[in-house]
Design a binder for these strands. Sequence first.
DNA 1: TTTCCGCGTCGAAGCGCTTCGACTGACTAT
DNA 2: ATAGTCAGTCGAAGCGCTTCGACGCGGAAA
Lengths: 337, 337
Amino acid sequence: MVTLAEVAQHAGVSASTVSYVLSGKRSISATTRQRVEESIRELGYHPNAGARALASSRSNIIALMIPLRTDMYVPVMMEIAIAVATTARTHGYDVLLLTGEEGPDAVRRVTGSGLADAMILMDVELDDDRLPLLRGTDQPSVLIGLPADTTGLTCVDLDFAATGALCVEHLAMLGHRDIAVIGEAPAVYERHTGFAERTLDGLRARARELGLRVLHRPCEGGYDAMAATLARVFDERPATTGFVVQNESAVEPLLALLRQQGRAVPEDVSVVGICPDQVATQASVRLTSVAIPAQEMGRHAVEQLVAKLDGRGSDEVLLLAPELTVRASTGPVPSGS
Amino acid sequence: MVTLAEVAQHAGVSASTVSYVLSGKRSISATTRQRVEESIRELGYHPNAGARALASSRSNIIALMIPLRTDMYVPVMMEIAIAVATTARTHGYDVLLLTGEEGPDAVRRVTGSGLADAMILMDVELDDDRLPLLRGTDQPSVLIGLPADTTGLTCVDLDFAATGALCVEHLAMLGHRDIAVIGEAPAVYERHTGFAERTLDGLRARARELGLRVLHRPCEGGYDAMAATLARVFDERPATTGFVVQNESAVEPLLALLRQQGRAVPEDVSVVGICPDQVATQASVRLTSVAIPAQEMGRHAVEQLVAKLDGRGSDEVLLLAPELTVRASTGPVPSGS
DNA sequence: TTTCCGCGTCGAAGCGCTTCGACTGACTAT
DNA sequence: ATAGTCAGTCGAAGCGCTTCGACGCGGAAA
């Protein structure tokens, strides 16, 4: 293993000079810099991460806590994780992957041991038990998601309230008056992850303003659950012509069932999805949808974090504006209704 | 920040004693151990990761390289990653998330800097450019996947050849003679990730033994691509009654299209999937399938790695035996044929 | 009783890096 | 000419931990 000292000797300078070449924290003459850089290349030198962390009390690592459970749409998580990792690298950071399993202990362990300089939490619940710890430490952190109380916290998330409103507006504009909302699995609501409720609140508020009727039904994914849910929906509200789906694994079943029942999409019934674009475009009917901007969320989270680590940046809540893409699953309400 | 020295002082022992209590590398009297452990708890001591890494030249971190691209089924990746992370934790390791983006450089960086003690590579290509580096270093590694040349490497993967054979055997047993294989996107084959080819080889070999006819078609996911592919299949081999699908995003389109064409599953046509159980059980017809044992692969990879790090373990290729679960998508060939 | 062994503990020497203060010249301002 | 400045470099002091050799002491073996 090549050390700084060896590089220094090889280049005929002191160790500190090599260090300053590497960090750029003091000015170095062009000739010296070149000599050092060449030695580094020749010897194949890589700074030792542990030593660096010890001396500088900076690990250049960002911890990313992902949820253990997989009842939510996994590709979104993955996309965020990948965006976090790649963005972090462009800022010179690596990413440590933590699962939610350890819960608050993981936060303690990471902050206490200096393993990471900062952390990103995903799947934040409204009243998350990790939040007090985050507030009580000076280690920067960013949440992906929105807890009930955001004081002293930095958050990034899609503006789900606006998303709900946007969906219902689109349907209203097309003339739909009776809207059914197919939501996430009941467990998601019970866990109070927030995003589902926020969507619903935003949607209901806007629907009230527009004078629409809304029926909300949580739904496990899959065909059987969707079939049961759909039956109940048309049972209670036979006039339903608009659907908002916030559950990726219900999208395809819903479309299939509607087709099977002889309800054409979008001629008889319109469907708006809240899901990644990939799901929307790969569905059997290309879905009008509001995308989950996973990449953007991951990227913003890292950039907020890096700003904080550099002494810039501050606590703020960043809600990304939803964008609705019209595809083939929504159309004007049938003239017969 | 609490240091070892402070704990030592608080407990009235020397620093080295505290260290030995923590590591268990020398025997410590019960009373001393208790006193030290209490001090640790009282002071809320967490060992500093950097210092520890420097002194011991062990970071207790495992690097996990995941592919950047997402043309393969992402949940499998995610499941593996989570299994790796949780298994690693039970052995006292954390996981560093690397994306394939940096390629071989990432391997150099991590081994050179001592950032991680070992690494796991996913999405290994047949002739991966990271392999020479792995062979040339003494840092333990495990591949998830199977390159062309495995000498000096440790690999974990599903036995895809056996998987292909198993699928075709099942169909043969039910009387099917003409089999169509719906494969991954062409890009997957072009990249030579291997698993797709291995499946096909195993499948073809067994089909030959059993006297079956096999038609293989790569297929992008989604409805349109699947529709085109399916049309070609029935065009070339009208007598096709058995399908093997190795492409998660083609499963649902295939089922829908068959239904649409009036071919009942499993009465007229049988379908076997090679996909995660979740996909198989959530499909519109519960799919007879060979599962991708993602969790198991992640777990095995970590355990192999830990064994190596402990001086146990050796280079070997572990191919997990496929298991076929019969569900509702396969049945005897129609008597009319 | 003496010798030996091994358990339990300590002190000290690093691990490879960062960083601070200090030093040297060359150059500018007075 | 002299003081002041500043770019460029060096030496040394740690950062918090692990680990090795050494030491003291009690009990077993002789």
